[in-house]
Computed example of a mutant assay.
Amino acid sequence: MHKLTVLYPEPTDRAEFEAYYRGTHLPLCAKLPGVQDITFSIGITDPGEAPYFAIFQATFANEAALGAAMASPEGKTVEADVANYATGGAIVLTFPVESITL
C-alpha cells in the first residue's frame, strides 16, 4: 500500500475551508483513479494550539498507482483545486505503508 497524506496549516477562515473542502474538494478526490480509501479530519486543534488544522489521507495499491492517479486529468484537477481553499497552504507527503496483523 501507498499513502498520500496532506497536512493543512490553519486557514484564513475555518468555516470557508470546511464548506469548500467537504462540498467541492473531497468529491474531486473521490474520483481519483485507483484510490482505495479516503480518510480526513477537520478542526483537529483549536486555533493557535498546533501547526495543523486538518489532515487528509488516501490509500493506493502502490506507488505506481498513486503516481498514475496524480498524473491523470482527475489528479491534475485535484492539485489545481487546492489553491481555492487552502489559504494556509498544504504539506503533501507520500510513503509506503506497512501493517501488522493483530
Rank of each mutant, 00 (worst) to 15 (best):
G75C: 10
R14Q: 13
E18V: 02
P9W: 10
I44Q: 08
K3E: 11
E79L: 15
T87Y: 09
P27L: 01
G89T: 05
D13K: 02
L66W: 12
Y52N: 05
L102K: 13
A58D: 09
E63H: 14
E98Y: 03
A19T: 06
L4H: 06
K3C: 13
G88N: 10
V82M: 15
F60T: 12
A69I: 11
P73V: 10
T77G: 06
Y85P: 00
T39R: 14
A86R: 04
H2N: 11
A58T: 14
I100E: 13
K76E: 15
E79C: 05
A71K: 09
N84F: 03
S41K: 05
Q57R: 12
E74C: 05
E63I: 14
F40K: 02
A80V: 07
G89F: 05
G88W: 07
A80T: 12
D46Q: 11
T101K: 12
L102A: 11
S99Y: 11
E98H: 06
A68D: 03
T24P: 02
L26K: 01
P9A: 06
N84H: 11
A15P: 00
R14H: 03
N84K: 13
P51R: 01
A68H: 05
Y8E: 01
Y20S: 01
K3Y: 14
L28Y: 01
A71G: 14
R22D: 03
S41C: 07
E79P: 04
I42P: 00
E79W: 01
T45P: 00
D37I: 09
Y52A: 00
A61N: 09
V6N: 04
I38P: 08
I38E: 05
A19C: 00
I55E: 04
P33G: 07
F60E: 07
G75M: 06
G89N: 07
S72L: 09
P11G: 10
I38R: 09
A50T: 02
Q36N: 10
L93H: 11
K3I: 10
T101M: 06
Q57Y: 04
A61I: 05
E10D: 11
A64H: 10
L7H: 08
T77D: 13
R22G: 00
F95I: 03
I91P: 02
T39L: 14
V97L: 11
L93W: 08
P73F: 03
G89Q: 03
E16R: 13
A68E: 12
T59D: 12
P27Y: 00
D13S: 13
D81N: 08
L26H: 00
F17Q: 02
M70C: 07
P96Q: 07
E16V: 10
P96R: 05
P73E: 12
M1I: 08
T45Y: 08
